[in-house]
Amino acid sequence: MPARRPLRGRRIAALAADGFERVELVIPLRALKRAGAGVDVVSLRHGRIRGVNLHMPATRVGVDKTISETDPAAYDGLLLPGGFISPDLLRQSAEAREFVRAFAATDRPIVTLCHGPWVLASAGVLVGRTLTSWPGIRDDLVNAGATWWDRQVVRDGNLTTSRGPQDMAAFVPAMLEAFTETSPQPARTTADDESDPQRDAPSGLAVTALRWSPKPSAVALVGIGLVAAARGGSRGPAPRG
């Protein structure tokens, strides 16, 4: 197998929904395809799902298959990008949770970053595992039974995790290595390990981005009002006392 195409013949499922962090899906997709992998974007619905750059809307990515029409056994590994909206939607989907469990049960590589591990927590596959994530969800993962480390990349058996967009340069090579291996490394034992503490202040990356956010446009405000009005109307008139 050519060294420049180490993933030729491998199939990877990229599980994402609206609100995925754009760089956490688009950059890994490009790297996987350059390495020869076949990648399907799997989501909750057909069409094109909207990405975000931190909190601002970004470009869309086309969906190849919905979860309901996808067999997890057809894939050699799972990529789960972050962004705080996409994982929150996926963790509420019984189909998405079961999709993730299928990879965990067979020790196939699961690669995720940022808020992506939220889905793993809701799927119940983090007990005894060691990982990292966006620092803000550290407590959620610890409460789900995991050990959390504040590092660029953490490898634990078939699970590879990273903290977010700021670690992309380290994440992509680790992702390719995880998907290239023909058998997973042994899982860590966490009996004597302790989680790193929660940070004392939020990420400067997010705080700075919010500080310099543009003001909402009149069009956006009108759109939000129309959606709220439509939802209110769909519920019908309130019952009389």
Results as ranks from 00 to 15, higher is better:
143 N>D: 14
123 A>D: 11
97 R>M: 09
111 V>R: 12
122 S>Q: 15
152 Q>C: 05
114 C>M: 06
155 R>M: 01
107 D>A: 07
148 W>R: 02
109 P>M: 01
142 V>I: 08
158 N>W: 14
133 S>G: 03
120 L>E: 07
101 R>Q: 15
111 V>C: 13
108 R>A: 04
152 Q>F: 07
140 D>M: 00
136 G>R: 02
143 N>M: 05
129 R>L: 01
119 V>D: 11
103 F>I: 07
147 T>V: 15
155 R>P: 00
151 R>M: 07
116 G>K: 14
96 A>P: 14
151 R>L: 12
117 P>I: 06
116 G>W: 14
134 W>M: 00
107 D>H: 10
97 R>T: 00
148 W>E: 00
147 T>A: 09
102 A>P: 11
140 D>L: 03
119 V>C: 08
130 T>R: 04
95 E>A: 15
100 V>K: 05
110 I>D: 01
157 G>H: 13
105 A>Q: 15
92 Q>S: 13
135 P>E: 07
111 V>F: 13
118 W>F: 07
94 A>E: 09
99 F>G: 09
128 G>W: 12
101 R>D: 06
115 H>M: 07
116 G>Y: 14
97 R>F: 04
152 Q>Y: 08
127 V>Y: 00
130 T>A: 04
131 L>E: 05
108 R>D: 05
131 L>H: 07
145 G>S: 06
111 V>P: 15
149 W>D: 00
143 N>S: 13
91 R>V: 12
91 R>W: 13
148 W>D: 01
157 G>V: 11
112 T>V: 09
121 A>P: 14
141 L>K: 00
153 V>P: 11
91 R>D: 12
126 L>W: 05
148 W>L: 01
126 L>F: 01
118 W>G: 00
112 T>M: 08
141 L>E: 02
95 E>H: 15
121 A>Q: 06
130 T>M: 01
133 S>I: 04
129 R>P: 00
124 G>M: 07
143 N>C: 04
95 E>W: 10
100 V>E: 07
104 A>W: 15
134 W>Q: 02
154 V>E: 04
138 R>D: 02
155 R>T: 11
119 V>K: 08
116 G>D: 06
149 W>K: 11
130 T>I: 14
147 T>D: 05
153 V>S: 03
118 W>C: 03
142 V>D: 12
134 W>V: 09
149 W>G: 00
149 W>V: 03
141 L>F: 02
109 P>Q: 01
154 V>C: 01
130 T>H: 01
153 V>C: 03
147 T>Y: 05
141 L>I: 02
122 S>R: 15
107 D>E: 13
117 P>E: 06
135 P>D: 11
124 G>C: 06
96 A>E: 11
103 F>E: 10
124 G>F: 10
95 E>P: 13
103 F>N: 10
119 V>F: 12
137 I>K: 06
117 P>G: 06
93 S>K: 14
114 C>N: 06
138 R>M: 01
131 L>S: 06
106 T>A: 11
104 A>S: 15
111 V>N: 13
155 R>I: 05
